[in-house]
C-alpha cells in the first residue's frame, strides 16, 4: 500500500493513499469539528464545518470529502476558519428551534458540542422561528423537525447500511425537510424495520427513542462504521 505524506498544522503525517484529509488530521492527533460526516457513511460535505485551508489553493476544502495528496500543507484552525465555523453554527441555531434545556439530547448532542468548541453561546443572526412539527407516529421513535439540521445522516444510514431507504430530503432551499415515504407519518411507512439506526446516528435530538426524556438520549454514531466494516471487510470490531 502506498503512503502519502503531508503536513497538518505543522505536524508531518503519513497516511495510506486514498485517505481523506480528515483521516490525515486525525492521524496527526488533531481534530476539526464535523456534523454531517460519519465514519461508515458516504460523505456529503454539507455542514461545511470541517473546511480547511490548503496552501496554494484559493478554495477551502472539506476535510471529510477531500482526498489527501502528497506534500499538501494544510491548516485546520486559522482565525479565518474559526470565524466561518462560528457563523455556520450560528446559522444552524438561527434556522431551527433549538431549546437545549428541554432537549432529549442535552449533554449528548453533537451540535451543542460544536457550539462549545467554536465558542458560540448565542446567534448574532435573528432566529427565524420556523413552524415545524413533531412526528410521533412510530411506535418506538419520534422525529422532532425543530431540531433537525439536515445533515442527512439518517437518510444515508437507512439507505446505505439498513437498505430500507425510509428517509429522504424533500423540497429545497430553506424549505428542505426530512420526509419518510411519500411524506407520510413515519409509523405508516412499512419499509421501516424499526432497527433504530437512524436514531443512533442523529447528531442532535431530532430523532429519539420515545422512552427518552430530557437529556436521556445516548446515541451510537459509531455503529454505522462497525456495521459497514463487518459487511465489507468481515471484521467485527465491537
Amino acid at each position: 500500500m502506498s503512503v502519502i505524506t503531508l503536513q497538518v498544522d505543522g505536524h508531518d503525517v503519513a497516511v495510506p493513499a486514498g485517505s481523506t484529509l480528515l483521516q490525515a488530521i486525525q492521524a496527526a492527533g488533531l481534530s476539526v469539528p464535523t456534523l454531517c460526516h460519519l465514519d461508515g457513511l458516504d460523505p456529503v460535505a454539507a455542514c461545511r464545518l470541517c473546511l480547511v485551508e490548503v496552501e496554494g489553493s484559493q478554495r477551502l476544502l472539506p476535510a471529510c470529502a477531500s482526498e489527501a495528496t502528497e506534500g499538501q500543507v494544510i491548516h485546520t484552525d486559522t482565525a479565518q476558519l474559526q470565524g466561518y465555523r462560528r457563523m455556520a453554527v450560528e446559522l444552524f441555531f438561527a434556522e431551527g428551534n433549538h431549546v437545549c434545556a428541554f432537549c432529549v439530547a442535552n449533554g449528548d448532542c453533537e451540535l451543542q458540542d460544536v457550539a462549545v468548541a467554536v465558542g458560540m453561546d448565542h446567534s448574532r443572526f435573528p432566529y427565524q422561528d420556523p413552524q415545524r412539527s413533531v412526528d410521533a407516529s412510530h411506535p418506538r421513535f419520534s422525529l422532532d423537525h425543530n431540531r433537525c439540521i439536515l445533515c442527512t445522516r439518517c437518510v444515508r444510514v437507512c439507505d446505505q447500511i439498513e437498505g430500507a431507504h425510509v428517509w429522504d430530503v424533500a423540497e429545497r432551499g430553506s424549505d428542505c425537510r426530512i420526509v419518510a415515504g411519500l411524506d407520510q407519518p413515519w409509523g405508516e411507512v412499512d419499509a421501516c424495520t424499526s432497527c433504530g439506526k437512524c436514531v443512533d446516528v442523529c447528531p442532535t435530538g431530532a430523532l429519539f427513542a420515545k422512552e427518552n426524556t430530557t437529556a436521556e438520549k445516548h446515541p451510537h454514531p459509531e455503529r454505522a462504521h462497525q456495521l459497514r466494516r463487518a459487511r465489507e471487510q468481515q471484521q467485527w470490531i465491537r
Partner: peptide
C-alpha cells in the same frame, strides 16, 4: 406510489425528487 412501484424506487426518493 405507482411510479415508485413501477420504477422500483423507494417512496421517499420519488417524493424527494417530485418536491424538489
Amino acid at each position: 406510489l405507482q411510479v415508485a412501484r413501477g420504477l422500483r424506487l423507494p417512496l421517499s426518493r420519488v417524493y424527494g425528487v417530485a418536491s424538489f
